[in-house]
Nucleic acid binder design. Structure first.
Lengths: 209, 209
DNA sequence: GTCTATAAATAGATAGAC
DNA sequence: GTCTATCTATTTATAGAC
């Protein structure tokens, strides 16, 4: 007997979720549309009904993820908090959004490795928003005499790279732990965020170099 | 007329080089053995003559890279330099080896995203060596009363993740630069290494948190 | 050691029924 | 909206000549 259709666009949502998991775990090329459909408890043809192609499906997922992070970061930069608090929030948001979307960190890592060759203009804009917002926060702190001018790319790298690394390696770290490495997974996202906040502010306030 | 064979194992070297470039740029699944052979100015069948399979070729490249970094790091940990200098050298070596092997950073990023599912036991051992050596250096510094006990994984993440990120994004950063982001690529590997050295030592010596 | 030719499997995409 | 069946292209891998 045929299953009854789910709520309108429910199948679309199911496909997006299954696809995000597949793309994150295997990467674009190794991802398999049949498997995506099966996980979503649907047929492969539904992917081509809701999306144009495997590539379009991928781009939509990536765009949504960058959009979510980008808009939250923009809001922080535009708020009237102090530069220090903005930096803390910036770090918090990257970590929270990254943890709330477990498929984002691996996909981000893969795109970096890819050299960004697969990101569309829209997605690139979101990514640049993040860097631009961080730059604006730093500028503001400099004008207020509280930050030293530091290359935003350097600051962003010190924040985002470790965060994505740690979020993407939750699984491996547990394996390393069991294999004998000491305490590889013995700290939480909050510990890491606090650490990065302290380091980043120390750098920006010139308490280090 | 048939080209004459190159020096013994010259074809093997050519295939390894071409394959590293292909795997780094496209990832394992999207890499194409035909293209690897063409770039090496050889025939696809030569890949199966020198290596068992595409997968074996991939693992050999990955293992060589981790081996090179692992053994240099082990040597640093075993030297009689001060803990501070060992930390500096550790960071230097990761950066230098990563820059000397431009295909390593992207492959590293992809493996992290993959959750390490493709690394063989040998390669995993090399990777654990790096973390183990860093842990030993930190322990030594602690016993000498110069470092605070900090989770090695936290320190390693703060060093390796930004380095791999920056080395892997040389190309994208130039594109972002032209697209309007300010000064994205306006610093060198030395600048970055110096920065990471300062930050890492500040953390280990308890001058931050 | 190196090549040609080909086998065999996989996987993206579409047509058309229900 | 959902599924079955199928077309087509790509691609790993091998057999065998030179």
């Amino acid at each position: 007997m045929p299953r009854r259709p789910r709520t309108p666009l429910g199948s679309r949502r199911a496909l997006l979720d299954a696809a995000a998991a597949e793309f994150a775990a295997r990467g674009y090329a190794a991802a398999n549309v049949d498997r995506i459909a099966r996980v979503a408890r649907l047929n492969k043809a539904m992917i081509y009904y809701h999306f144009r192609s495997k590539a379009a499906l991928y781009r939509e997922i990536l765009r949504d993820m960058f959009d979510a992070v980008g808009s939250r970061v923009r809001a922080i930069a535009a708020s009237d908090a102090s530069p220090e608090d903005k930096i803390r929030s910036f770090i918090d948001v990257i970590a929270i959004e990254g943890e709330a979307r477990p498929h984002f960190p691996p996909m981000w890592l893969r795109e970096i490795a890819e050299g960004g060759g697969r990101v569309d203009t829209q997605t690139l804009r979101y990514a640049m928003d993040v860097l631009g917002s961080l730059g604006a926060i730093i500028d503001e702190g400099c004008r207020a005499g509280r930050f030293r001018p530091v290359n935003p790319m350097l600051i962003q790298g010190g924040i985002v790279a470790p965060l994505m690394f740690f979020l993407a390696t939750a699984g491996v770290r547990r394996r390393l732990d069991r294999a004998g490495a000491h305490g590889a997974s013995k700290f939480s996202r909050e510990d890491l965020v606090t650490h990065i906040q302290h380091v980043t502010l120390a750098v920006l306030e010139g308490r280090i170099a």
